[in-house]
Amino acid sequence: MIRTVRANKRGFHTVHFEPGVNLILADRSTSAGEKDTTNALGKSTLIEIIDFCLGSNTPPGKGLRVDALQGWAFTLELSLAGQNVAVTRATQAPGFFAIEGLTDGWPFKPAPNKENVPGLDTKKWRSVLAWALFGISEPASDSGYKPSARSLISYFVRNQAAAYNAPFKYFDNQKTWDIQLHNAFLLGLNWEKVLCWDRRLACSLSARRKRRIFQ
């Protein structure tokens, strides 16, 4: 459970969450007219901050890594594997996740950086999330592919308009096999069989195309 979202700058209003469903609403003044909107008040940015702290890809100049947010660091306080921890990610150093709290039993232990702040790099933090949130800890299957923390989190953190066009996918051009695999995993079904079936089907279609070419 996410408990708090905060930042290192005074202008940011700390957000606290309670158990159960939490709704983020924008206030409208009594003088607001029909043409007044609730855009640009931070609702989508809050989702982006949560995604940022959960290890999203952050290219320079995009999202939270714009010039206006240089020097900012965002912190997510949450319960992970039954322990309360806080993870902080800075916009100028997105490859490091500072960790506070108990990390007993984690597959990777936070290690100090140059500033002696304990934390994890992006790959290890995503591995911890995969283990804690989705129970993924074993090596990849023989197929060489399996659902990841980031691909699964994208089903819950839908921060693009296209992610709401269909419930079973989180972007418009998502491959059919990818949709089937991830939904099988989230429903507790045997996702490896789904992947195996899709690979066999792909190989069969490929063989048919080759036969047509050489006939």
Rank of each mutant, 00 (worst) to 15 (best):
R3G: 06
R3H: 12
T4W: 10
R6E: 03
F17W: 09
E18S: 14
P19I: 04
P19C: 02
G20F: 04
N22R: 08
D27S: 07
D27W: 13
T30Y: 11
A32W: 15
E34G: 10
K35D: 14
D36E: 07
S44E: 00
S44Q: 06
T45Y: 01
T45C: 07
F52S: 02
N57P: 01
R65C: 02
R65H: 00
V66F: 06
V66I: 09
D67N: 07
L69D: 08
W72A: 00
A73Y: 01
E77M: 02
S79R: 12
G82A: 06
G82K: 02
Q83W: 04
N84V: 03
N84L: 08
N84M: 11
A86Y: 05
T88R: 03
T91E: 08
L102Q: 14
W106G: 10
P110I: 02
P110W: 08
E115D: 15
E115Q: 15
T122V: 04
W125P: 04
S127A: 09
A130S: 13
L133V: 00
L133W: 08
L133T: 04
S137L: 07
E138K: 15
Y145F: 05
S148M: 02
A149N: 08
R150T: 10
R150P: 03
L152F: 09
L152R: 05
L152Y: 08
I153C: 07
F156M: 05
V157T: 13
A161H: 02
N165M: 10
F168L: 07
K169R: 15
F171G: 05
D172N: 03
N173E: 12
Q180D: 15
H182N: 14
H182P: 02
H182T: 03
L189Q: 13
K193V: 11
W197S: 15
R199A: 11
R200A: 14
L201R: 15
S204W: 14
R209N: 06
K210F: 15
R212L: 06
